[in-house]
């Protein structure tokens, strides 16, 4: 009985390191194929459209309501004094530094990494990935590299949009519901809007975008066993992308932007 228990620990550890190794190899291959020709501009463009343009409604709506509720909460929680400058400054800081990239990342993770895992997973189980190889096309170069590039470039743009709409959401609630003066609110927003904050958010967004595509592609590629396998890959892609975004968010903030 005791031996079984030890064997169990051993196999769990082996599986863990196996998975880490596979992911590292996959990431390395994906990155290598991003910078070596041939490139597939058509597919890159389609992925950029898929990740960037078609995520705009989702991003816009979530950013608007995030900004709006942030303004409301700050007002309720900290309205004792100086509410006007407090609300507008916290909204602009919170959105650009944290909520824009993180909420944008999580929403895109749900939308995009699931779709990628399902598409690539289906290609895997229907032998389309093998077919690519037999047609002298490297599947990692053809499927993964364009998605990684599209993810890393499109998410910052989406987050920029989210920043603007999020701050606007706060502005609408602040001026319409809480009755702040429009001019003063805008002045405060501009005073507290720092380029560094925006840029740190965009750098994060780029990394999140990369992680989203990576998880979608990785789980799709590794999927086995028909419809059930694809379903599992989709779930795993969303869950792991979300966890990675939140973890990476802390690490990046701690390392680069906490001073």
């Amino acid at each position: 009985m005791r031996w079984n228990f030890l064997a169990l620990i051993g196999s769990v550890i082996l599986q863990f390191f196996g998975a880490v190794g596979r992911l590292a190899m996959f990431t390395g291959k994906g990155l290598l194929h991003c910078v070596t020709p041939p490139f597939y501009p058509r597919i890159l463009l389609r992925q950029m459209l898929q990740i960037g343009y078609y995520s705009l409604p989702v991003i816009g709506l979530t950013a608007f309501f995030t900004g709006a509720v942030l303004a409301l909460q700050i007002y309720i929680g900290g309205a004792r004094f100086n509410a006007e400058s407090l609300v507008s400054s916290i909204v602009v800081l919170g959105i650009t530094r944290e909520l824009g990239p993180v909420i944008g990342g999580l929403m895109v993770a749900g939308r995009v990494s699931a779709a990628m895992a399902a598409e690539i997973g289906t290609m895997r189980v229907t032998e389309q990935i093998d077919a690519l190889t037999t047609l002298s096309t490297n599947p990692v170069k053809y499927l993964v590299a364009p998605r990684l590039i599209a993810g890393a470039t499109m998410l910052p743009l989406l987050v920029l949009v989210a920043d603007v709409i999020g701050v606007f959401g706060g502005f609408v609630v602040g001026t319409e519901k809480l009755g702040f003066n429009v001019g003063i609110y805008l002045q405060n927003t501009i005073d507290f809007l720092h380029m560094d904050d925006v840029i740190s958010g965009l750098v994060k967004a780029s990394i999140f975008g990369f992680l989203i595509s990576l998880m979608g592609c990785y789980h799709g590629f590794m999927s086995r066993g028909g419809a059930q396998g694809v379903g599992r890959a989709t779930t795993n892609a969303v869950v792991s992308a979300s966890i990675m975004i939140l973890t990476a968010n802390y690490i990046i903030t701690e390392l680069f932007f906490a001073q």
Binding site: M123, T126, E127, Q128, A131, L135
Partner: peptide
């Protein structure tokens, strides 16, 4: 490998056509 592969063709069981 790609060079060798270019001289081969394969018909897959399910067709494996790219649906995109």
């Amino acid at each position: 490998r790609e060079e060798v592969m270019a001289r081969m063709g394969m018909l897959f069981q399910g067709g494996a056509l790219f649906d995109s």
